[in-house]
Design a binder for these strands. Structure first.
Lengths: 225, 225
DNA sequence: TCCAAACTTCGACCCGCATCGAATTGTCAG
DNA sequence: CTGACAATTCGATGCGGGTCGAAGTTTGGA
């Protein structure tokens, strides 16, 4: 009967409100300091430090020293995937947070998921890439076709640089708001960064919202609509 | 900051060892009584009843009355998906249960995942269906092609009956042991049941192991190898 | 060298909840 | 109706762990 991995350790870790708040804050993809995460979770810095130590010990977070700051970030995309799938189930079951902010509609439209674009616009882009045969799915992992590679090169994405990274180029990630998939992986990250570079969009402070400008959204639609 | 669903409730629910043991036992796909689940989790029946009430209240389990027994089962495939993804992460992080039984190799080879075939043979079957173009992936959801439909009909799967169900015909599910996808959904369930009907395999008591006979495995390989 | 800021460690408190005993309800068999 | 079994409810207990105050450690700046 006692077969397989033990999920209770990980789930209990995620199950504490202070820790889950920190994890959700880190789903913005940014690395945050212990102090920022403490404010985010609404606890003192001592408590936060204890939590962060446990999360790091379990392999859910990475810690990076920088001067007298300690920056924490989500360990990898597997962790991000588990958090998004849990978020999806919670949304479906109606377990919403008590204070739903006014930014909820913007979040559903376009937000950062760890390090790539999620929300309606993320799903739209992913669908468009597939229907235009720029990406094909093979055993659940998206693959860039030759036509996709030329498109990315024209758009200013350095595919050779991406290939040198250890990360997989393409991954799919389930969207909790749209309940559809969007593009993750190194390419997903590169595309989102390119949107920022081109001035199509910018990140709202202290939020996961990705705010597209009028012209930015028009160009996005022209390319992926 | 307080945006999106609250995952801490669900995660805390899964995070208790007794409850996670029950959930893992129910991942066999069978409906189990409160007493069986209590034995499985190693707690008294009163404690189990309390846990099961909470799990049902949160929408993770379904309760069915039958005489003086109450049968519990996983609520739906979304819940099963979250549990499998958590299991995958736990396995990768090495959070194994204390007492790993001798059946571990058999589990990795072929096991039941909620109600369909998982493990190496499950992945093998899924890969074969895709490479032979019996299933194509469209936006992460597998679709049965015409050639796939004739194959299933020849194999004795009543596709019309499956279409009448509310469940999606095909879904993909991430495998914690192989870290690849296998086939879930109504078709995945139907195929596994057909293997049992044909005598190719049978379930080991009190376990998720699917034991193929020699001839059963040979025929399976001839079809999906 | 001294101080301030960021963080960690230690220790104590205390709330929450898992756990089980006892009693209650419901169901089946005779 | 009675006894046996399955499960729920209630109440009491006890432990684990989240929380924060205070002290200690590391780093940066003056």
């Amino acid at each position: 009967m006692k077969e397989g991995p033990d999920i209770s350790l990980l789930a209990a870790l995620i199950g504490d409100p202070a820790r889950s708040n920190m994890l959700m804050a880190l789903m913005s993809g940014k690395a945050l300091t212990a102090g920022e995460l403490a404010r985010e979770a609404g606890v003192t810095i001592q408590t936060a430090s204890s939590h962060l130590g446990k999360l790091e010990g379990a392999g859910l977070l990475l810690k990076r020293h920088e001067g007298r700051h300690r920056y924490f970030s989500i360990a990898d995309e597997d962790v991000a995937g588990v958090l998004e799938s849990l978020t999806g189930l919670a949304a479906k079951r109606g377990h919403l947070r008590t204070r739903t902010g006014p930014k909820d509609p913007e979040l559903r439209k376009a937000r950062v998921c760890y390090n790539h674009l999620a929300g309606e616009m993320g799903v739209q882009m992913y669908d468009n890439l597939i229907t235009n045969n720029h990406i094909v799915l093979k055993d659940n992992t998206p693959l860039l076709t030759p036509s996709g590679k030329t498109l990315m090169a024209e758009f200013g994405v350095d595919l050779e640089a991406l290939a040198k990274l250890r990360r997989p180029l393409c991954k799919s990630c389930l969207d909790w708001s749209a309940r559809r998939s969007h593009l993750a992986g190194a390419l997903g990250t590169a595309l989102l960064n390119r949107f920022f570079e081109l001035g199509w969009a910018e990140r709202l402070e202290n939020s996961r919202v990705v705010a597209f400008s009028k012209t930015g959204e028009r160009k996005f639609s022209a390319m992926f609509g």
